[in-house]
């Protein structure tokens, strides 16, 4: 009876294979519990479907801190938001050690960069612009609101229509209705239009009505901005 022989005749219970998988990299620039927590919460809130037990590699190549990072704490925080750190990449000696303690293996930098692999999707960085582009006339009685961004209208805005934006408003056509920019309080918002014929324009609550507007730059290509609390309308040369 030879045990070695018996084992050799058994079917193998596993096989090791090389494979290439696309995985999200969490590139850490610096680590501070509170800031990291806040930003992670914000990121997850904007794309909740993306973070469902998603494995990530913590990249420390661009990390400004070279000192000790508590990877046990960081790992718990990540898992709380649906991210599962599986390894670290790069990092200093100290960081390697603490990662080791947290049970995170270390990937060498070049091995982690396969030459032809497509760039993994960096979801948090490609935030969709919240600007709104309107290509048909905004008619009397209609209201268009660009929440959280700019409103760009490539058509006339009729008298009796109302266009609003948290950011700037651009009207490539006559502006005959009401335009309210910076409605959530952004005082740096501006209103641009090809022909100023508005009933009212307002930036962050400061406004001018038709009567005041008719005095200057009427039917001219203009912009309006705030200087202090004063709404200034100026024509383009």
């Amino acid at each position: 009876m030879n045990t070695t022989n018996t084992e050799a005749t058994l079917e193998p219970s596993f096989k090791l294979k090389g494979s290439r998988v696309t995985i999200t990299i969490l590139e850490l620039y610096e680590y501070d519990y509170a800031t990291f927590n806040d930003q992670l919460a914000e990121t997850v809130r904007s794309a909740p479907d993306f973070f469902q037990q998603t494995p990530v590699i913590l990249s420390l190549e661009r990390c400004k801190d070279t000192g000790f990072i508590d990877f046990i704490e960081l790992g718990e925080l990540c898992r709380e938001y649906g991210l599962v750190p599986v390894a670290i990449r790069g990092g200093s000696e100290d960081q390697l050690l603490s990662a080791n303690v947290a049970g995170l293996p270390h990937l060498p930098i070049n091995a982690a960069k396969p030459p032809e692999a497509p760039e993994p999707k960096k979801e948090p960085e490609t935030v969709a612009a919240k600007n709104l582009v309107v290509t048909t006339p905004v008619r009397s009685g209609q209201q268009v609101y660009a929440k959280g961004g700019d409103l760009i209208i490539i058509a006339p805005v009729s008298a009796g229509a109302e266009v609003l934006a948290d950011g700037n408003i651009h009207v490539y056509g006559p502006l005959r209705g009401r335009a309210l920019a910076g409605v959530s309080g952004d005082k740096s918002a501006r209103i641009f239009c090809q022909s100023l014929e508005a009933e009212l324009i307002s930036i962050a609550g400061s406004y001018k009505v038709n009567e005041d507007l008719q005095k200057d730059h009427w039917k001219k290509s203009t912009q309006a901005s705030l200087t202090g609390d004063q709404l200034i309308v100026s024509a383009f040369k």
Binding site: S140, G141, A159, G160
Partner: peptide, 13 residues
């Protein structure tokens, strides 16, 4: 004209 403009908005929506 104003009322027609209003109707045009409704036709589109």
């Amino acid at each position: 004209v104003r009322d027609s403009d209003r109707i045009l908005g409704l036709l589109q929506s």
